[in-house]
Design a protein around this nucleic acid. Sequence first.
DNA 1: GAGTTAACGCAACTGGAGTTGTCTTTGGAA
DNA 2: TTCCAAAGACAACTCCAGTTGCGTTAACTC
Lengths: 195, 195
Amino acid sequence: MEVTKRPGGRSARVRDAVRNATLAELAEHGFRGLTVENVAERSGVHKTTVYRRWGSVEGLIADALELAAHEPWPVPDTGTVEGDLRGVVELVRSGFEDPELGPVSSAFVAAAMQSPEAARALHAFFEARHDQSAQVVRRGVERGELPVTVDAREVVRVAVAPVYYRLFVAHEPVSREDADRAADAALAAARAGVL
Amino acid sequence: MEVTKRPGGRSARVRDAVRNATLAELAEHGFRGLTVENVAERSGVHKTTVYRRWGSVEGLIADALELAAHEPWPVPDTGTVEGDLRGVVELVRSGFEDPELGPVSSAFVAAAMQSPEAARALHAFFEARHDQSAQVVRRGVERGELPVTVDAREVVRVAVAPVYYRLFVAHEPVSREDADRAADAALAAARAGVL
DNA sequence: GAGTTAACGCAACTGGAGTTGTCTTTGGAA
DNA sequence: TTCCAAAGACAACTCCAGTTGCGTTAACTC
């Protein structure tokens, strides 16, 4: 994306300013409170510029999302699949509890439900996340803790799904125990050979 | 909710007209395309009235959601837990593929992410759904297919979660096989005693 | 069946999101 | 250095979601 003919200097500064402003606004006011005008004012960039380059709030979010997708994320390494997978799920859960990251992450999910552009960006984001997280499952297979037939990415999906389901669909609280149980369930299914 | 001092006659007609118009608009244009003005015009009710009684688009959705929560839904009865749980998950999956129900259901999920009011309504909705669906698990326990210690509602959650996760979070397609696998995974975990 | 008032209809208004046309700045190439 | 075009700034405008004040209708009460 972003086929800019002038990547240097002012354009780059503007882009960074807008991205940072987007994240800051998102953290403060969430997706509902995100407006192009506020982002423009906060970044010091004129609103017409933001409209022309990003088009809308969804565009802003899609752009910020691409940034986030490239950021590395700390895959746990406790020595056992149980510990690692629990760690991954707990990382997800606690991320949404964080007053800084929580609103931003939630905004991403919300935006993707309304904008195909943001949906594509979020899809790519999770594609990357699944790949990274699947590592803990693959290590488990290498250690002989899991059958070689397991679909590592699918195990990750099944493990984290209940957390997202509770948060964004059923709108129930998610405790640490809930997260652990979800990880354990995915693991049990993998051991039983259904994943 | 809805402490109406004049539940009869005109007020009731207005309420029904608006509810139906909301569902119709939702089915046609989805959550993004839902506006108070369109609902007002379609229902033949003046927009001021809609604004005063429902407040906003989210209010309209929350109201429609309460209706949906009370509607019974066909819990499968195939004779085995496998069949029943697969049936439940497949019912969820196919529901979102349905050109009629799909957009409406998706709109509910989307609205709940932006409005506490809709979130509460959706929470109640899933509370009811979980209760009804848990029946298939309880029957499995009675038949001796599952240990008596299982948390029936939790099994349901883990079973359907991957479908919602794929659809609304990771934005991946969900095949029938994916749905079956999710049901099987929850079942395997239940048999292993982790749910 | 007459009075009361909750609920609805109507029209005019407000505010802010998004657009358009034009001028100015500046990055990059010759 | 010079030049040109891409990208940004600015102001003025459009348009529509949401509001307000007031008149009208029709449920409920006695």
